[in-house]
């Protein structure tokens, strides 16, 4: 909590000094939810309207993952989002490697941790699919971090 207050304060001061800087406070908060001993790598902003039910999640992003690395995927919603942010990861051959939900049963990955870890054994590009549960509208961030070995 203390860390969050410090970083939000510094970001606020920084914004006053440099008005052009555009870091969304939600992404900062989300990055801080990734836990200690992690190094932030990338964030993906997900902003979707209400959609009809379909086979695939609506937002697609590509990200490289490397062998022998442990990655943490942290998912955060804006307060006014109607559905919870969900994610699925496929490898370059389209094989599902990770899913934070089950469409049929409606089950989601466990709380209270807002993240799920992935121990990668195959270097290459992966496709990250995002959406909000039940194809609801919402705003959120998916953050990729490296779980540091030290």
């Amino acid at each position: 909590m203390k860390k969050l207050i410090v970083i939000l304060s510094l970001l606020f001061i920084g914004r006053l000094l440099l008005p052009g800087q555009t870091t969304d406070p939600l992404v900062t908060k989300c990055a801080m939810n990734s836990g200690s001993n992690t190094a932030y790598l990338k964030d993906f902003r997900i902003q979707l309207g209400k959609g009809s039910a379909q086979n695939e999640l609506r937002q697609k992003e590509v990200f490289p993952l490397s062998k022998n690395m442990r990655y943490r995927f942290t998912l955060c919603n804006a307060d006014n989002s109607l559905g919870q942010l969900i994610m699925k990861i496929k490898d370059s051959d389209g094989r599902v490697q990770l899913s934070t939900f089950d469409l049929k049963s409606g089950k989601l990955y466990p709380n209270p941790n807002p993240y799920i870890d992935f121990e990668c054994q195959k270097t290459g590009p992966y496709t990250l699919y995002f959406d909000f549960k039940d194809f609801q509208q919402g705003i959120g961030y998916g953050i990729v971090s490296l779980v540091k070995s030290k």
Binding site: I7, L10, I13, G14, L17, L18, T22, T23, A39, Y40
Partner: peptide, 26 residues
């Protein structure tokens, strides 16, 4: 896009390392 002043402040204290990594990479 480079929030230099914030990054510089964070650099002055090791306890801010996570924040520093985040802001510089972001």
């Amino acid at each position: 896009f480079f929030d230099f002043e914030t990054i510089k402040r964070l650099s002055l204290n090791r306890s801010n390392l996570d924040s520093l990594l985040f802001i510089s990479k972001n």
